[in-house]
Design a binder for these strands. Structure first.
Length: 593
RNA sequence: CGGGGCGUGGCUCAGCUCGGUUAGAGCACACGGUUCGGGACCGUGAGGUCGGAGGUUCAAAUCCUCUCGCCCCGACCA
C-alpha cells in the first residue's frame, strides 16, 4: 500500500473526547473514525488488523471443530419472544418494525438463531456434538459507551455455539474453548487471565471471563496470588471472619441519637463493626411470566461487610435492582439509618440475609425508630429471613475462599467469555433430539464470545509507547513500513520502488511511505502507526551500503545491503512470529469449584 | 436513567462573564520560494449556517427558552 493514496490521514492531536490511550492512538494513526456514540468506522489499517485477528480466531475455532456460518443481524422478534428475552431485556435491545409493522430486533447475540437452526437441523444424537460459529456484527444499545473501541454499541464479535447431547460432551467443548481462547489471546500478544463470572442475561451454569488486566478496565476482579483463585467481584466469594460464639443476650433498646451509620454506631457503642448488622433497602424487579413485579427487599449483612448487588440479584432472582427511595422505606415501617428486619411484616418485605448473619450472635441493629438501636439481635430468635445466601461483596484483603490468603483487587477489561448455557434456549424453542434410547431431549448449548474491536483496542493498550503504537506482528496491519527519503539524483526513489516491488513479490506486507513529506514527518508517522519493522531508503543509507532496518520496539538500526534486504526482512518477520508462537501453549484448566 | 462538562473551518483551541466593525490563532490543506534523517521556514490563498430552533434587542458566537449531539462520573456487557 502506498501511503500517498492511503484513505485516512494521521493527526498530530487526538480529538478532545478521546481519553484512553488506545482511543487516542487509533484515531491519531488513522485506524478508526467515530460516527456517533459507540459507533465507529474502521479504516484500512484497522480493517487489516481486524482481519488478522479474525483469521486467528478462525484458525483456533476451526481447530476445535468449529464450522463457520453467518447468521443474520436483523431478527424477527418472534424467536426472542419464544425465549422470553424480548421482554426480559430492556432498552439495550435495538427494536424496529418492518414495513408491515412486525416487531424486529437487531442482533445482540445469537442464541435464539442457533436454537432455531438447531431445531430444524438436528434430530439425532448421532449428529452431535457440533460447533458452529460466526464473526458478525452485534448491536447493544449500551447505556454508556466509552473509551473508544473498548465499549461501543455496534461491534463485531466472534461467537461460537456448542451443541451437545450430554454434560460430559459440553464440558469437553467448554474446555476446548478455554484453551482455544488462550491461544487466540496469546497469538495476539495480549496477556489475559480467566476469572469465574456471573452468568448474567445469558443464564446457564458456569462461566469464565477472559480479562486483560488494566486500570482502565471496568470490571473489578479478586485475585489470590497464593492459590490462583480469580473471580469477578460480582460473584467473588471469600471467607468471612467468624465472630465468637456466645449465649444469646436479651434484646435491649439503646438510645443512639444522631448515629445513623455503621462507623458511627460502632464507635458510639464501642463495639466492633462485625458486631453490628447493616440493612440495605432495594427494589427488585422480579420476572413473572411476560412481565415483572417489584419486590421490596431488605438485605442484611454484618457491619464489616458490604452488599454485593449481583449476588443479591441472583439470590432473589431479580433482573434489576435499584436502591429504595426514602418514602418507600418508611412505607414498610422502617427508618433509614435505624433499620432492622426485627418486627417488619414479611408479607411486605423480602428479607434476605447474608450467610454470616445466622452465625453471628448478639448483633446491634436498628430499632426502626429514629435515634434508637437494639442490642442482642439474634437470627432465628428475633427474626428470620426468606432467603439466607452469600450476598456480601469481597474486597481487598478479604480471605481467599480456597486457601485463606489475602485477596488482591485488580481492574480488567473483559475481552472474552465462555458460558455453559445448558438447555435454557433449546428447551424454550423446542430444539430436541432423540437420544440413544429413543427418548426426546433438549440439545445442550454453550456459547463463547470475543469482541474483535475490543481485542484490537486492548492490544493497542498493551503495545504502545510515547511515540505511538507498537503492534505485535500477528496483529500489525502491515509487517514492514518502507520509508523513502528522496534524494536529488533519484537513486533512493528507484531503489525504494524496486524494493517495494520485490517485497510484495516475496509476499511481505508493506506500507510504502512514498509521500512528498519531510523525513521528520515520515518517521513520526511510522512510529505512530507502529508497524513492527521499518526500512529506510535514503541517500545516506545507500552511501552506507544499503537500507536501514529498525524494529519498532528497539532503538538499534542496522544497514542491510540492498541485495539482502528481502531475505533479511523475511528472517526478521519469521523471528517475530516465532517469538509470539513461543508464548502459545497449553494452559491448565482450573478444576477447583 | 441520575450527576457534571463541552458544542466556534478537517484537528486543537481563543473570543462568551461585560452583546457592538469584515469571528481569530496554531496544526492540517492549495500555490510559489527556500529547505530536506525525527512533526521546517517565508509569502499568498481557500475553508466557518459559531450544533439546531425560537425568543429578547437597534444589534446575538456572546443573554433567555427549548432541542439535538458528544464526553466524563455512577447502575449494565464482548
Amino acid at each position: 500500500m502506498r501511503m500517498s493514496h492511503q484513505f485516512g490521514q494521521t493527526l498530530r492531536e487526538a480529538p478532545a473526547e478521546a481519553e484512553v490511550v488506545s482511543h487516542q492512538l487509533l484515531v491519531r494513526a488513522g485506524f478508526i473514525r467515530q460516527l456517533g456514540a459507540g459507533i465507529f468506522s474502521y479504516l484500512g489499517l484497522a480493517r487489516r488488523s481486524l482481519t488478522k485477528i479474525e483469521n486467528i480466531m478462525r484458525e483456533e475455532i476451526n481447530a476445535i471443530g468449529g464450522q463457520e456460518v453467518t447468521m443474520p443481524v436483523v431478527h424477527p422478534a418472534d424467536i426472542w419472544k419464544e425465549t422470553g428475552r424480548w421482554h426480559q431485556i430492556g432498552t439495550e435491545m435495538g427494536r424496529l418494525k418492518d414495513k408491515s409493522g412486525r416487531d424486529m430486533a437487531l442482533a445482540m447475540t445469537h442464541e435464539e438463531v442457533v436454537a432455531d437452526l438447531t431445531r430444524r437441523e438436528v434430530q439425532s444424537y448421532r449428529q452431535l456434538p457440533m460447533l458452529v460459529y460466526h464473526i458478525q456484527t452485534k448491536w447493544r444499545d449500551d447505556p454508556r459507551p466509552r473509551a473508544g473501541l473498548i465499549r461501543v454499541r455496534e461491534f463485531t464479535m466472534l461467537d461460537s455455539y456448542s451443541l451437545d447431547a450430554d454434560e460430559a460432551s459440553l464440558d469437553r467443548q467448554y474446555r476446548a474453548h478455554y484453551q482455544a481462547y488462550f491461544n487466540i489471546f496469546n497469538r495476539c500478544a495480549l496477556p489475559t487471565i480467566t476469572v469465574k463470572s456471573d452468568v448474567g442475561m445469558m443464564g446457564g451454569s458456569l462461566a469464565h471471563e477472559f480479562m486483560y488486566l488494566t486500570p482502565i478496565g471496568e470490571d473489578t476482579l479478586l485475585l489470590c496470588d497464593h492459590c490462583g483463585y480469580a473471580a469477578n467481584r460480582q460473584i467473588a466469594r471469600f471467607r468471612k471472619p467468624a465472630t465468637a460464639a456466645e449465649a444469646p443476650q436479651p434484646l435491649e433498646r439503646v438510645a443512639t441519637p444522631g448515629v445513623a451509620t455503621i462507623e458511627a454506631l460502632a464507635e458510639f457503642l464501642g463495639v466492633p463493626k462485625a458486631r453490628t448488622a447493616k440493612a440495605v433497602f432495594l427494589i427488585a424487579s422480579v420476572p413473572q411470566g411476560d412481565s415483572a413485579v417489584d419486590r421490596f427487599v431488605l438485605a442484611l449483612v454484618r457491619g464489616d461487610m458490604e452488599v454485593n448487588e449481583t449476588k443479591l440479584a441472583n439470590a432473589v432472582k431479580a433482573k434489576e435492582l435499584r436502591p429504595a427511595r426514602e418514602e418507600e422505606i418508611r412505607a414498610v415501617g422502617a427508618v433509614p439509618g435505624y433499620a432492622s428486619p426485627v418486627g417488619l411484616d414479611p408479607r411486605r418485605v423480602l428479607v434476605v440475609v447474608d450467610e454470616a448473619i445466622p452465625t453471628s450472635p448478639n448483633l446491634v441493629g436498628g430499632a426502626n425508630e429514629p435515634g434508637y438501636h437494639t442490642r442482642g439481635v439474634n437470627y432465628g430468635r428475633d427474626f428470620t429471613a426468606a432467603i439466607v445466601a452469600d450476598i456480601a461483596a469481597a474486597g481487598e484483603g478479604d480471605a481467599c475462599p480456597v486457601c485463606g490468603h489475602a485477596l488482591r483487587v485488580s481492574r480488567g477489561v473483559e475481552v472474552g467469555n465462555i458460558f455453559k448455557l445448558g438447555t435454557r434456549y433449546t428447551d424454550a424453542m423446542g430444539a430436541t433430539f432423540l437420544d440413544r434410547g429413543g427418548s426426546q431431549r433438549a440439545v445442550i448449548m454453550g456459547s463463547y464470545g470475543i469482541g474483535s474491536g475490543r481485542l484490537l483496542a486492548c492490544v493497542a493498550e498493551a503495545h504502545h509507547d510515547a511515540d505511538g503504537l507498537a503492534w505485535p506482528i500477528t496483529v500489525a496491519p502491515y509487517q514492514v513500513h518502507l520509508v523513502l527519503l528522496p534524494d536529488a539524483a533519484g537513486q533512493a526513489q528507484r531503489e525504494a520502488e524496486a524494493l517495494y516491488a520485490r517485497l510484495q513479490a516475496a509476499g511481505v506486507e508493506v506500507l510504502f511511505d512514498d509521500r512528498d513529506e519531510r523525513p521528520g514527518v515520515k518517521f513520526k508517522d511510522a512510529d505512530l502507526i507502529g508497524l513492527p519493522l521499518r526500512v529506510t531508503v535514503s541517500e545516506r543509507s545507500l552511501k552506507q551500503g544499503g537500507v536501514e532496518l529498525k524494529r519498532r520496539t528497539a532503538p538499534d538500526r542496522a544497514i542491510v545491503p540492498l541485495g539482502q534486504a528481502v531475505s533479511r526482512l523475511q528472517a526478521e518477520i519469521t523471528a517475530l512470529y516465532d517469538a509470539i508462537a513461543s508464548g502459545v501453549g497449553p494452559v491448565p484448566y482450573p478444576e477447583a469449584p
